[in-house]
Simulated assay, not measured.
Amino acid sequence: MKTSPIKIFKEWYKEELDLTQVRIPTAVCLSTHGTDEFPNARFVSLKEIINDAFIITGPLNSLKGIEIAKDNHVALTFWWTETERQIRVQGIARKIPERLADKYFHERDIYSKIVSSICEQGKETKDAKLLEQEIQQRVSRKEMVDRPEDWGGFSIDPVRIEFLEFKASRFHDRKLFELENGKWKGKQIQP
């Protein structure tokens, strides 16, 4: 198999985006090694692919940020209902540069910016209503919000990418690409 898995990903991604009606078509499940020895998974939004790396963003002091700082071996799982395809990516996560974090933060809507500047994602709150009121007040004042120091993102360099196309016969088409000595090696695998 000579085809680049990144090229396949981009083609499949475009096909799904062209067909989908879901509200957040960029959603992807990010899995990390939990600090409590359990795997941890949550949905994040794929921002783009830069230099063949998958870009995600969020608070660096959140549980996902803490877990990635401890062990940067992560997995991404895409499930696309319209095209009935799944893509699994395993890779190494690294913090994105500050200028890129600034760019992604600037692109967010005011509500998202204010939530990120006030909230400590995943931490306990004594009064959620009070916190929500503060956010609403700041949104209504249309406050300018700078990117918090603990907000950034990760660039995930893939080392393994598996493509699965579901078939009604259950004889699913699966291809696995693994990075070996800087080159992608692909093989067909059983369903």
Results as ranks from 00 to 15, higher is better:
Met1Val: 10
Met1Pro: 03
Lys2Phe: 02
Ser4Gly: 04
Ile6Ser: 00
Lys7Ser: 13
Ile8Trp: 02
Ile8Phe: 01
Ile8Leu: 05
Phe9Asn: 05
Phe9Ile: 14
Trp12Val: 14
Tyr13Gly: 03
Lys14Thr: 12
Glu15Arg: 14
Leu17Ala: 09
Thr20Glu: 00
Gln21Ala: 06
Val22His: 09
Ala27Gly: 11
Leu30Lys: 07
Ser31Asn: 07
Thr35Lys: 14
Asp36Leu: 06
Asp36His: 09
Glu37Asp: 02
Glu37Ile: 13
Pro39Gln: 02
Asn40Thr: 11
Val44Ile: 11
Ser45Pro: 08
Leu46Glu: 06
Lys47Glu: 11
Ile50Cys: 05
Ala53Cys: 13
Phe54Lys: 05
Ile56Pro: 11
Pro59Lys: 13
Leu60Asp: 03
Ser62Phe: 05
Lys64Thr: 14
Gly65Arg: 03
Ile66Val: 15
Ile66Arg: 13
Glu67Val: 13
Ile68Lys: 06
Asp71Gln: 04
Thr77Phe: 07
Thr77Ser: 02
Trp80Asp: 02
Thr81Ile: 15
Glu82Gln: 11
Thr83Gly: 06
Glu84Gly: 01
Glu84Trp: 04
Gln86Leu: 10
Ile87Cys: 10
Ile92Thr: 13
Ala93Cys: 05
Arg94Met: 09
Lys95Ile: 12
Pro97Glu: 02
Glu98Lys: 15
Asp102Met: 04
Asp102His: 04
Lys103Phe: 14
Tyr104Arg: 09
Ser112Asn: 09
Ile118Gly: 06
Cys119Asn: 07
Glu120Gln: 14
Gln121Tyr: 03
Gly122Thr: 06
Lys123Tyr: 04
Thr125Trp: 05
Lys126Ser: 00
Lys126His: 07
Asp127Val: 11
Leu130Lys: 13
Gln133Ser: 00
Gln133Ala: 05
Glu134Tyr: 04
Glu134Arg: 14
Val139Glu: 00
Arg141Pro: 11
Glu143His: 10
Phe154Gly: 08
Ile156Arg: 01
Asp157Tyr: 11
Ile161Gln: 00
Ile161Asp: 03
Ile161Val: 10
Glu165Cys: 12
Phe166Cys: 01
Phe166Trp: 07
Asp173Glu: 09
Arg174Gln: 00
Phe177Lys: 00
Glu178Val: 15
Asn181Gly: 08
Asn181His: 05
Gly182Gln: 05
Lys183Glu: 07
Lys185Pro: 03
Lys187Ser: 01
Lys187Asn: 01
Ile189Tyr: 02
